[in-house]
Every structure is written in C-alpha cells, then in structure tokens.
Design a protein around this nucleic acid. Structure first.
Lengths: 109, 109
DNA sequence: GCGCATACTTACCCTTCCGTCAGTACCTGA
DNA sequence: TCAGGTACTGACGGAAGGGTAAGTATGCGC
C-alpha cells in the first residue's frame, strides 16, 4: 500500500465501492433505519448494504446506533466527517446532473 | 444496466477506476505526452494508463492528439467537459487533504 | 407453538479489474 | 545492422469485488 498521493486520491478511496455514493446521498436528510436504507437504495442486497455501511463506519463517515428492542432497530446517520464529505460531493453531483444526458449516452454496456 | 439514480452516481461512474483521479489531476496543468503521464503517475503500467485514457476519451473527458512524427508523439489534454469535471473535484480534493491524517489512519490493508 | 418482522451472517460462486510480460511498428543515430 | 526511443497491443492469470441464497437470534401477537 502506497501513501495517498493527493486529497482526491484519499477521497476516492473512501467513497469507492458500488453503493457508497448512494448510501451517503440517502443519509443526507437524516438518520435512517437499516430497512429504510434497503428500500431506498433499489437494487442493493442486505449483504452489500451492511458491508458498505461497516466500511463507512470504520472510516468514521457513518454512525451506527443500536436500539435494544424487539424487533431490533438500528439507525445509521452521518458523522460530522460524513456531513463534510457530503458537502464536498455536492459540486460533483451537480456536474453529473448537468451532463447526465451525455454521460448516459457515452456509457458502456 | 440501470439508469443513473443521481448526478453523483453518474460522476462516480466516470471517475471510477484505479488511476482516473490521478490522470485528471496530472492533466490539470495542461497537455501531456503519454510518456510524461507515465512518469508523473508513479506505479501505473503502460497498459493500464492507455486503458484508462481510452475510457476517458470515449467519455469526452480527455482529448487525444497524434503528431505524425518519429519518434511518435501523442498528447493528452482535458476537454471542456474534463475541465468542468476537474473543477467539481476540487472540493473533494480539499476535503481529502484536510482529513488526510485520519484517512490514512483508518485505511485498511 | 408458529409465523412474522427486523437486522444481520455465512458459504459459495462468478465476473470484473488489474498486473506481468512479451511483442509490434517506425525512424534515428552510431 | 543494430540498439534506442516512443506509443502502443494482446495473452494470461490472480486477486478483489460483488451477487445468490440460505440460515441465525429475539420477542410479539394469534
């Protein structure tokens, strides 16, 4: 493993993974339960969602809170670091939205 | 293949790939020859560099210009779209730089 | 005592991604 | 004539990432 060569390099490592951008986006509006996230992020499986959430949690981007009740309840929310990351992602989302048509067109597969 | 669910989704698809962020960053200061890029981006192999450049070219992020001379000369530069993408990446780079220490610390492997 | 809801966990497999390495084509200068 | 510089190309294999499907624990209501 080499050291990160620039901030972008580090950031790309954090948000890398098929579902991470969508998780971050979904949590933008506040805490969500596991099941809510699964329904919100169409196409994701339970295994992948948990895996990506755990990775974000270990990076201190996402906070996980367990409510000891039955049926179980677990809430996921953005940490301060996660919120600042989301802020930094806004211009990128805007860029993607502005060029959505051409990006869809040049997409492979 | 599903349609992009948001701009961020689309943008992540464009910059996805092990070397794309570093390529974009290297081209920030102007056109570069293939060999210059290879030397600038330490660790990349010729095959991977070409592959990623071709993908960026097909997305109209990077422009490829061949100079018919010997030895061959090929210059890569950012298109207008590429420049706007780079602008949108600046906040993300800043975020990464600001949190570099903690990100290095929570890194796996 | 049985199904249901929630939030996971695990085993297995398959595809995609990436790296290694060898080879191509062209002209130049020694 | 032969090494050298430049910009590729392609075969092969391993590692990483992601998908499928089945199973776990807990207590509640019927």
């Amino acid at each position: 493993m080499r050291a990160y060569t620039c901030g972008l390099d580090a950031a790309a490592d954090v948000i890398g993974g098929k579902w991470k951008p969508r998780i971050l986006w979904a949590l933008h509006h506040g805490p969500m339960r596991f099941g809510e996230l699964r329904r919100e992020i169409s196409g994701v499986t339970e295994k992948m969602l948990i895996q990506q959430l755990r990775e974000l949690e270990s990076r201190d981007i996402v906070h996980r809170e367990v409510f000891h009740q039955v049926p179980p309840k677990v809430e996921y929310s953005l940490t301060e670091l996660g919120r600042s990351l989301n802020e930094a992602l806004i211009p990128l989302d805007t860029w993607g939205s502005e060029h959505l048509t051409e990006l869809e067109a040049s997409r492979v597969r």
